[in-house]
Write a protein that binds this DNA or RNA. Structure first.
Lengths: 345, 345
DNA sequence: TTGTATGCGTTATCAA
DNA sequence: TTGATAACGCATACAA
């Protein structure tokens, strides 16, 4: 049979209560006794039983707070679906999840949202804005006993418990690889990024370039524009870029604004000759894949991201043990028309 | 608060034991009482609490039996890894998993393996061979109270609880789509299938053809060979096929024998001009992707297959409720060199 | 500082 | 046919 608190209590000649105090560092126990108990637990290789723990923890009904920049951003619909899946699975364990949404990437706004429920939550799940004030807030929350999990985007120099999301550099590498395959390794391409200030976007571009440099000398970059994840801006900028570079025959869309870029390409009459690689599979992107204008789109498993973040939050809440790794990376999946659209459609 | 057996007991004026007997159909309860209890449970929308259930069920220490045709088949290494992951997660709930392996697809052998532990297991997870005797065995096991989950491959006309695996037809469709993208829609290709008798292999070919017919008139099939998932046979047959069709410029590898096919292509001096699409990412396949001879390989998330099958087994064991769907389909992922190999390598 | 008692929700055993 | 009670492993309020 497995090792339980009861068994440790017997073998070290104390009560179950004392073992509990020792193992959970609740204080009020004689150092010698504590030492003895710890040793026995160590020797027996004790690890708390989840089923028991879950049942006991249930009445505390822990609340997980989630903050997403999801307003006006269809990508997060799938993340939310994953969060809801996990919430349903954990309901029997007393877990509740509260999601707050915001529009855009304003640190002040994000701080305010955090403060709105920080005195009620046991865990924070956050798509963090890369700003010192957010990093500091994560630190002060940690001191108050509220760990933070970075979701979808990581934040530097912070004390977040772990990161759940994709590997942005890798996704850029894959984007370059697939573009090379689709163009036979010869293309004059443009880049449409979201924002130069977004770490993930820059990492994708860096990944793209490193593969290009190492393996595909026939790929030549002509121009780069910023869409700010906005379809209108994407449309305008792309029209301008295409006017300036009539020899452009491929576009690498790094982030949002996919629909705007594609509409500009169609408008300019370059639909046929253009090879476009994008990210994610929000409905408007799927539409463009179906139409054939986007040849491949690289997806980051948003549902799994939401699900896993909540599960990892629960694991930590229940066990108090540091995660096995501080980065849980979900794979980048290449999707083409046949992946996304039913054949008979 | 949520609905518990205790609450139902109070409201229907009986003891918790009686409620348990009614809700779990253990018999020995007056029809009228049963009716009353059932009605209350119904009205309150009772659903058993998993944490409590897990704790109580723990001492029964259920054993899940798994049978895999994994000997000499590297694909199943990942499936096994997924099974082990799930086993570790469920250890605290008393679950144990016993894996039996076999070589090849002999129904008699599989029957024998089932019979070796069928009197000890609570659930069977099986990569079923599509044979009436196996289907019948699944039926008789069900009558004995042992449900079977079909893993990786489904079995027709059987009473298996559910299927966990990929959509083979869809994976064939994607294979055609990616081949068309890689060849600009113009290719004279050959097919190397595993076995004409394997349902999954035929479904992949069917999927390939349906997309080809609907969308890519420039793809022309020249020949088809059988590898029986054996590298030597694959090598021999491919050499022969290439001799017979010197104009072949693409190959669709449907199943195993990937390494053999690729070696034959290299041997014949067609490495440069050939576009090869394959399945899965076992080490030898990754090697060929790295070398650039395979342009894309379509993977079916073997780790997730193993993991999910065990989880679904547990869910059913714990809840006794029919799964939400009888087919749990894991997505087909297109992988290219940059997906599989580190850039700095 | 330590021990005891009780509860979380379900299941199983024993007695009535 | 039914009810009462103990058990699973952990947490905690309360008593000593």
């Amino acid at each position: 049979m497995s090792v339980t608190i009861k068994k440790i209590a017997e073998l070290s000649g104390v009560s179950r209560g004392t073992v509990d105090r020792v193992l959970n560092n609740r204080g009020n126990v004689h150092p010698e006794t504590a030492e003895r108990v710890r040793k026995v637990a160590q020797q027996l290789g004790y690890s708390p039983n989840l089923a028991g723990k879950a049942l006991a923890v249930r009445k505390k009904s822990p609340l997980f707070g989630v903050i997403l920049p999801s307003e006006g951003n269809a990508f997060f619909d799938d993340v939310i679906a994953g969060i809801r899946n996990a919430e349903a699975e954990l309901r029997d364990f007393g877990v509740r999840v509260e999601i707050r949404t915001m529009r855009g990437f304003d640190p002040t706004r994000q701080l305010k949202l955090i403060e709105e429920f920080e005195d009620r939550i046991s865990m924070l799940l956050l798509v963090p804005i890369n700003d010192v004030r957010i990093a500091e807030k994560i630190g002060s929350l940690k001191e108050k006993g509220i760990p933070t999990i970075a979701l979808n985007t990581d934040i530097e120099n912070s004390s977040r418990l772990c990161y759940v999301g994709s590997d942005y550099k890798k996704s850029g590498e894959i984007a370059c690889g697939i573009m090379a395959l689709l163009t036979g390794g010869r293309a004059n391409f443009g880049i449409a990024t979201g924002s130069f200030r977004m770490l993930g976007h820059s990492q994708r571009i860096a990944g793209f370039h490193s593969v290009m440099k190492a393996r595909y000398p026939g790929l030549k970059m002509l121009d780069i524009i910023e869409t700010n994840d906005d379809d209108i801006q994407a449309y305008e900028e792309t029209c301008r870029m295409l006017r300036n570079h009539p020899d452009m025959d491929a576009i690498f869309i790094v982030a949002g604004g996919v629909y705007g870029v594609c509409r500009a390409v169609i408008r300019s009459g370059y639909e046929e000759r253009m090879t476009i690689v994008s990210f994610d599979d929000i409905p408007t992107t799927v539409e463009m894949v179906e139409r054939g204008i986007i040849k491949a789109t690289i997806c980051q498993q948003p549902v799994a991201q939401g699900y896993l973040a909540v599960r990892k939050a629960f694991d930590y809440y229940i066990s108090g043990a540091e995660p096995e790794t501080d980065r849980f990376i979900l794979g980048n999946e290449i999707k083409i028309r046949e992946s996304l659209v039913d054949i008979d459609k």
